[in-house]
């Protein structure tokens, strides 16, 4: 039954992702689509915010706009969380101000689309904060990633131009044409299937044992839908989608798992439709899906075979669907959970870490494909050098200046993860002389999740304190914006180049052989960077040390 559900979810994702990818391509190109009725609202937003969204500008002006807008979101969320207790409405349970370092971590976490949570929503947040800070940031952070991807595609398409589109135009349309309609559909599904969505306070009741207990209610379906659609992952409740209100049954679990995978896969297809590169896109989809399905098989076997690991899992989902969710959520930079990852087998934890270390197997909305393209650029360069052909990608010559930035973008990821883990292994509160393999894995996971803007965690670190809040906050920030700014610069450079006609000396980047080179480069970069830490983390436990 569980395996059948996994197959059905995957079929549903791949059947719908291709038409969705075509639709998103139309949205990016400004071609007529069925959501054109949103145009008056978009124009009103542009006028109200006094931005000129209809003229294309250079990559540097787009990057500056992206950063300025995100700085505004950071200030907005940080201040609102600090004054939460003084806001007189939508706070039926009287939630007070958030502690400053926790507010810092929470806001950076949601601005960067990470949604790593060192708080529990039902304990620390008012309904106002859940909607105006958490829900709002989940929309705009996902839209930032999608808009950055759109700018990247425009840069690849342009010839001899210094303009790469307009960030504001893509940003607003990503919300009105993609995220809003999709999250509306998913939230209606969730409400119909039993997820609460209201603005009442906590309800008290008497348990079967005769004790008094209270359960928090609120706009759960609203927050949960955008959490999955935008590869955000930040749960309404502390236990995320393992909570019976946030993910009530087998069907909601399937709907949410579908929502996790849908947009990341659709955005890969968008690449082909937007740039008219169907063959290359087919190769990308095959590479990503081969790795994703291998990881899924490994994790499902790890959780269901042998000891049939039910620890930390909801019986309404079972171990196979918990494993599949784990792979889906770490592959797509989502980070939501429907089981306790800390209780899973070490091999499953190693797979989740590998997913986040590569961070491009579908990846987060928009940024996943940007990360993947960095591997593609590196592969084209390496393969070109190896066989003595001119390194080119879609007719654009790859020069050393682009390679320098691509390498910087790819290497910032291991630097943040390994640097953060090394520092925490020595300085984190509560870390003594003898760090066990499992404790080390927890720290490694925390920083991998932060740098990959994933947000899931093994827990058990008691991480709501100044050290973890600030260190992971910095890592999330740098792990988000450097890998966006670098590729935008590369695409700015590509936009200014003209197409070089293909010759006998041109490397074919759309064939099977080049696909293997991409996989090789991904594995080599990740393995060389991360194998040693995996060996003294989950693999050490797996091998019985």
């Amino acid at each position: 039954m569980e395996i059948a559900a996994i197959v059905v979810i995957l079929i549903a994702v791949f059947l719908t992702a291709k038409p969705a990818g075509r639709y998103i391509s139309h949205v990016f190109k400004g071609e007529p689509v069925f959501t054109d009725f949103m145009r008056p609202l978009e124009e009103w937003i542009f006028r109200f915010c006094r931005v000129d969204a209809h003229h294309e500008v250079s990559w540097s002006r787009n990057a500056a706009a992206l950063l300025k807008l995100n700085l505004l979101f950071f200030a907005w969320g940080f201040i609102l969380l600090l004054i939460q207790g003084y806001i007189p409405f939508l706070n039926p349970d009287g939630k007070g101000a958030m502690e400053p370092s926790l507010a810092f971590h929470t806001v950076i976490s949601f601005v960067t689309n990470t949604n790593q949570q060192h708080y529990s929503g039902e304990v620390d947040l008012s309904h106002f904060s859940q909607i105006v800070v958490i829900g709002f940031l989940q929309f705009v952070s996902a839209a930032t990633g999608i808009a950055a991807y759109a700018l990247f595609l425009v840069g690849l398409k342009k010839r001899g131009s210094h303009e790469t589109g307009n960030f504001y135009w893509f940003f607003v349309r990503s919300i009105t044409r993609i995220l809003l309609p999709l999250s509306l559909v998913i939230s209606i599904f969730l409400v119909v299937l039993g997820t609460p969505n209201n603005y009442t306070g906590a309800k008290s009741f008497i348990t079967l044992e005769g004790d008094s207990a209270s359960v928090s209610l609120g706009p759960v379906a609203t927050v949960t839908s955008i959490k999955q659609v935008g590869t955000n992952g930040g749960g309404y409740y502390g236990t995320n989608s393992a909570h019976p209100f946030e993910n009530p049954n087998f069907i909601t679990n399937a709907v949410e798992n579908f929502a996790i995978l849908f947009l990341p896969v659709a955005l890969v297809f968008t690449f082909g439709f937007f740039l008219n590169e169907k063959k290359l896109t087919r190769s990308f989809i095959l590479i990503m899906s081969a790795v994703f399905l291998s990881f899924t098989a490994l994790t499902v076997i790890s959780e269901t075979g042998g000891s049939f690991n039910l620890e930390g899992k909801e019986v309404r989902f079972g171990p196979a669907l918990s494993a599949f969710w784990g792979v889906s959520t770490t592959a797509t930079s989502n980070g939501s959970v429907n089981s306790m990852l800390d209780s899973q087998q070490p091999l499953s934890q190693a797979v989740y870490l590998a997913d986040m270390m590569i961070n491009a197997i579908y990846g987060g909305v928009g940024v996943g494909m940007i990360n993947f393209m960095m591997y593609v650029i590196l592969s084209a360069f390496i393969a070109g050098l190896m066989v003595g052909r001119t390194p080119e990608l879609m007719g654009k010559k790859i020069e050393s200046k682009e390679i320098k930035i691509a390498v910087l973008t790819v290497l910032i990821h291991p630097v943040l993860i390994l640097g953060g883990t090394a520092i925490s292994s020595h300085f984190a509160p509560g870390v003594g002389e003898g760090v066990s393999f499992h404790e080390f894995t927890r720290m490694l996971y925390e920083f991998t999740s932060a740098a990959a803007n994933n947000g899931s965690g093994l827990e058990g670190l008691a991480d709501n304190n100044g050290f973890w809040n600030i260190s992971t906050g910095i890592v999330m920030f740098l792990g988000r914006f450097i890998p966006i700014i670098g590729p935008l610069a590369i695409t700015g450079s590509f936009a200014s180049k003209n197409i070089v006609p293909g010759t006998e000396g041109t490397l074919d980047t759309s064939g099977f052989a080049f696909g293997l080179v991409i996989v090789g480069v991904m594995i080599i970069v990740s393995a060389l960077s991360f194998f040693p830490v995996l060996a003294i983390g989950p693999l050490a436990i797996f091998t019985g040390h």
Partner: peptide, 30 residues
């Protein structure tokens, strides 16, 4: 006070990444 310091840290991070834009522009000559 702690909140102000953390706000300043956030601003500093943005300024650092913002500083990459002119650096990369110069490197790529675009």
């Amino acid at each position: 006070m702690e909140a102000l310091l953390l706000m300043a840290l956030g601003l500093l991070l943005y300024v650092m990444v913002y500083g990459l834009i002119p650096f990369l522009s110069k490197l790529l000559e675009v």
